[in-house]
Amino acid sequence: MAILRFSIAPEYNSVYLASRDIRDVPYDFREKVIPHTSDCISIPCTYWDDGDTHFTVGAASEITMPTPPTFDGILNTPDKRLVFFDANEPEFASLSVPTVKTRIRVWIDHPREPENVIVAWG
């Protein structure tokens, strides 16, 4: 599979990752660096007026990182899709995954305003 790359400057400083269209997203960044439920992961981003946040997304077999991830968990993916969206855009990137439960690992380069986000699935 190819590695997906995209950049975004979300107005509300976070991007959500889920398998389907949900609106009940975790948002309390005071308690966790990357808030999450079994159905949705909230990823912090750079403030929109400070520039883009750059995402690199791919299969875990294609993404190797020298440090432990900031987040490592299982996401329900009943539609066998990973969908990236924010408060204003219902879907700005998506990809297929082979299972209904998908291991997700996320690396960010800053705990509150990352400029670079790496997401490995599988």
Rank of each mutant, 00 (worst) to 15 (best):
T77V: 04
D39F: 05
N88A: 09
N88E: 07
R105A: 07
R81L: 15
T67F: 06
P90D: 12
W48R: 08
C40N: 05
I104K: 10
R105K: 14
V83D: 01
G58H: 09
W48C: 12
P78M: 08
F84P: 11
V83K: 05
T64R: 15
R105G: 04
A60H: 01
T77P: 03
S94L: 05
W48P: 03
V83P: 02
D79S: 04
D72C: 04
T70L: 11
E91T: 02
A93H: 05
T70N: 09
C45F: 07
S61N: 13
R103Y: 00
R103P: 01
R105T: 02
T67I: 05
S38L: 10
T37Y: 07
F84K: 08
C40Y: 03
E89F: 04
S61E: 14
N88R: 07
F71A: 01
D49F: 08
V57S: 09
K101V: 00
S61Q: 11
N76T: 11
P66S: 15
D72I: 02
L75Q: 05
I34Q: 13
I74H: 00
L82G: 02
I43R: 13
K80D: 02
L95Y: 00
A60E: 06
T99N: 05
T77F: 00
S61Y: 10
N88H: 05
T77N: 04
D86E: 08
F85H: 09
S42Q: 10
D52M: 14
S42K: 09
E62R: 10
A87K: 09
I43Q: 15
N76W: 00
T77Q: 01
A93F: 02
C45A: 15
L75M: 08
S61M: 12
P90C: 06
D72A: 07
T77L: 01
T67M: 03
A59S: 09
P35S: 07
T67Y: 12
D39S: 07
L82E: 02
A60S: 15
F85D: 04
T37H: 09
A87G: 11
M65D: 08
T53Y: 03
L95W: 01
T99S: 04
